[in-house]
Amino acid sequence: MKLLIYALLLIKNSLEETNEILAGCDTSDKNLQIIAIDKIGAIVGNFEGDLIADKAKAIEFAKEIEVLSNQFTLLPVRFGSLMVSTEAILDLLNKNSKEIQNNLLHVENRYEFGLKVMCDSSALKSSLVENSGLVVNSSHAKNLENPNSVYRNWLEDKLKEHRLEELVLNYVDTVIKEITEAIEILGATAKFKKMVSEKTIIDAVFLLAKDQKNEMVDTIIQFQKKYINLMFILTGPWPPYNFVELTLK
């Protein structure tokens, strides 16, 4: 018998009370329990046999964490973390208690949201070129008399490509700056990735107070209205997966 760890949690009241809340959670038939030291604990479930990490099990695991996050301040543990005994988990909690507590305090009463900003890449580039006055499709005809024209044309094309990339990056930076300013007002913290793919120009995650949820949604609605050529996709609230910086030893 092994123990599958779902999450680490902050125990605000007594362990008995926390266990009662856990028993009231709709976590199907998992028979979850809390293994704790002082104010931190691990929510675990019994597990027999080998864990085959297929998509269905991963989704089931994620759903359990979501249910638990509605009741507790927690740090989700990556799917597939098994330990062999209660003693091993207590040892793990003990060795890492300070880091766990710091991470838990950081995410307490906060939600995570995800934001993807997508675009029609060609249309966006055309629009940026038009607004900047950058000449992309110049004729090479003037170089035909020059024996080195093929190299010059290649170089010119590369330069234009580079300038176009710069234009797009500057545009993305501008959007990120505006989003950052807007969510700072809400007291949210953010992590951005830009140019994740040709179509996904921004992939961001936010951590914000639970009572700021509606304001966050309204903020993104305003951005969608302003940038009609972009598509803003907000997902959440999520447990704070992206704001855990913890590798347990």
Partner: peptide, 16 residues
């Protein structure tokens, strides 16, 4: 679903 899988498979507390 995609967002959920991305989070549960690649984010969160790492035990090793």
């Amino acid at each position: 679903l995609l967002e959920m899988l991305d989070r549960v498979l690649t984010k969160g507390v790492i035990l090793t």
